[in-house]
């Protein structure tokens, strides 16, 4: 049984332009599952809803957001009450930006408040040592840290929590290659010890090295979930035209950029969201949004995928 299931999730924002109230649907019919012992890498362009998914799972979306769909944790629905109880304890977040540290609190204390079991001080010192943060760093305030040190502090908060599910929202930018490797290996380690990790990242290459599955997001929905092994060669085994294009756009592959840009949530096309940019698009694609379907051991949202 998956430890975390997201079924048909949609997230909308109410916004006022003058007196008129408008709702923007920024995530629509999104499906993702997370198994214990597994790393799921989530990739997709900026604005495709990756951070919002993370925040929706933790129940920390802004007040003007409304969600529908079902999120289940360990088989049971994750209601707001359960989210309040579980977050920080069973589900931990590594936030996307270093602004998530309290500017007036010493970073050591901020890590210690995340420790739920054991002696907070020694657990914090251990994790700092693992991330090569010297002992005097625990006495510092966030403004005294370099970007990389702040990132490692954020990583530490999740690592000490003892959570069963870790959602890491782009945890590695600005880090030295060695530290990136170290951090990713840590994720692999906690996953091998039975945790589930959702690794949101732009860095497809290093994601492929440690992840088990890859979920590709486009314009607020999942277009494909595939085992990492499919990402090789010219992408023949990849199911969805967008994931294929993403793969081929990488510098080490064909380095062909995808023409056009992701639609804004206020002007989503009818039918398949990728249709305006898809080389395989047919008139049928523009009728209704394709359903997510099983294909060759993965999932895809495309009527023509084989």
């Amino acid at each position: 049984m998956p430890i975390l299931e997201v079924e048909n999730l949609s997230v909308s924002f109410k916004q006022y332009t003058g007196l008129k109230q408008k709702t923007h649907k920024v995530i629509s019919s999104l499906n993702v599952t997370l198994e214990a012992g597994e790393i799921l890498a989530v990739v997709g362009a900026s604005g495709s809803g990756k951070s919002l998914l993370a925040h929706a799972i933790l129940g920390i979306l802004p007040r003007n957001a409304s969600i529908c769909g079902v999120i289940k944790y360990a088989g049971e629905e994750l209601t707001p009450d359960r989210q309040t109880v579980l977050r920080g304890k069973e589900i931990a977040l590594v936030p996307q930006s270093v602004n998530f540290l309290d500017p007036l609190m010493r970073v050591g204390s901020q890590v210690r408040t995340s420790v739920k079991n054991g002696d907070a001080v020694s657990v914090q010192r251990e994790v700092f040592e693992r991330y090569h943060l010297r002992q005097e760093v625990e006495k510092m305030y966030p403004f005294q840290l370099s970007g990389g040190m702040a990132r490692r502090t954020l990583l530490s908060t999740a690592m000490v929590s003892g959570a069963k599910v870790i959602i890491a929202d782009e945890p590695t930018p600005g880090l030295d290659p060695d530290v990136i490797k170290e951090a990713l290996n840590n994720f692999r380690e906690v996953a091998d010890n039975g945790c589930a990790v959702m690794l949101i990242t732009h860095d497809i290459e290093s994601a492929l090295n440690i992840a088990d599955k890859i979920a590709v997001f486009y314009a607020g929905t999942t277009v494909e979930v595939a085992p990492v092994e499919n990402f090789k060669g010219h992408g023949e085994e990849i199911r969805h035209p967008y994931s294929k294009a993403l793969w081929r756009a990488l510098p080490q592959n064909d380095f062909i950029p995808i023409p056009g840009s992701q639609p804004h949530p206020s002007s989503l096309p009818a039918g398949c969201l990728f249709a305006p940019r898809c080389v395989m698009a047919t008139p049928e694609c523009r009728q209704v949004q394709p359903e997510m379907r099983k294909l060759r051991g993965g999932m895809v949202r495309c009527i023509h995928a084989t």
Binding site: L58, R87, G88, A92, L93, P95, F100, P103, T113, S114
Partner: peptide
């Protein structure tokens, strides 16, 4: 953001 993160940690 830092209060949001504090809530995410269960505070």
């Amino acid at each position: 953001d830092y209060v949001l993160f504090a809530r995410a940690r269960g505070e």
